[in-house]
Amino acid sequence: MDDKLHLPCPHCGATNRLPAARLAEAPNCGRCGQLLLDGRPVELGDADFDAVVGAYPLPVLVDFWAPWCGPCRAMAPAFEQAGRTLQGQTLLVKVNSDDNPQLASRFGIRSIPTLVRLEHGRETRRQSGALPAQAIVQLARAAG
């Protein structure tokens, strides 16, 4: 059995082959040298979302938001805090729904903020409305 994961770098897009056992060791990208799972949310859009999220072997939690949205801005620090807690377990992604209408439409985003949990590119959970950090962590860890 091959225990190697193919992790796309959220910073440069390079695919990194990594033993699953090393996920907890804060691995760096072989091309750009940045942490593959640094705990900070990664901003993605229509152009790069599928390349990063579709192939990601760990759960992904996507925050659909917009800069004009008060609850979205209020939840942003909690989302970042949850990312630090979930480092190495879940990739947190932010998608500006105004700038990326194709993704917002594809996921049927009707209100923001909306969090969508994905496993292997497939939606497993969804929650609309601003949440505190602990609730975001619980959503990310919820089994599909």
Rank of each mutant, 00 (worst) to 15 (best):
M1L: 07
M1C: 06
D2W: 03
K4S: 07
L5H: 06
H6V: 15
L7E: 04
C9R: 00
C9L: 03
H11R: 04
G13H: 05
G13E: 01
A14P: 06
T15K: 00
T15R: 03
N16R: 03
N16G: 04
R17C: 06
R17N: 07
L18T: 03
P19K: 00
A21V: 02
A21W: 02
R22V: 14
R22T: 15
L23G: 00
A24V: 07
E25R: 11
E25I: 00
A26K: 02
A26T: 00
N28V: 05
G30M: 04
G30Y: 11
C32G: 04
G33Q: 03
Q34T: 04
Q34I: 02
Q34V: 11
G39P: 10
R40E: 13
P41A: 14
P41V: 15
P41S: 11
V42D: 14
E43L: 02
L44A: 10
G45E: 06
G45Y: 12
G45R: 13
D46V: 15
A47P: 07
A47Y: 12
A47V: 11
A47I: 08
A47C: 11
A51D: 15
A51K: 12
A51E: 08
V53P: 02
G54H: 14
G54D: 07
A55S: 12
P57H: 04
P59F: 07
L61G: 08
V62N: 09
V62P: 15
D63N: 12
F64N: 08
W65H: 13
P67N: 14
C69N: 11
G70Q: 07
C72P: 01
C72N: 09
R73F: 10
A74K: 14
A74G: 06
M75I: 10
P77K: 13
F79M: 12
E80P: 01
E80L: 05
Q81Y: 05
A82P: 03
A82S: 05
L86C: 09
L86P: 04
Q87N: 06
T90L: 10
T90V: 15
L92P: 14
K94E: 15
K94W: 00
D99F: 09
D99L: 13
D99K: 14
N100S: 12
A104P: 09
R106M: 06
G108Y: 01
I109F: 15
S111Q: 04
S111F: 14
S111R: 11
I112L: 05
L115F: 05
V116Y: 08
L118N: 11
E119W: 12
E119G: 13
E119T: 10
G121F: 02
G121D: 07
R122T: 01
E123Y: 01
E123L: 00
E123P: 09
E123D: 08
R125D: 08
R126G: 06
R126V: 01
R126I: 01
Q127C: 10
S128P: 06
G129R: 01
G129P: 02
A130P: 00
A133C: 01
Q134G: 02
Q134R: 13
Q134A: 14
A135M: 03
V137P: 06
Q138A: 15
L139P: 13
L139H: 08
A140W: 10
R141V: 10
R141P: 12
A143D: 13
A143C: 11
G144I: 09
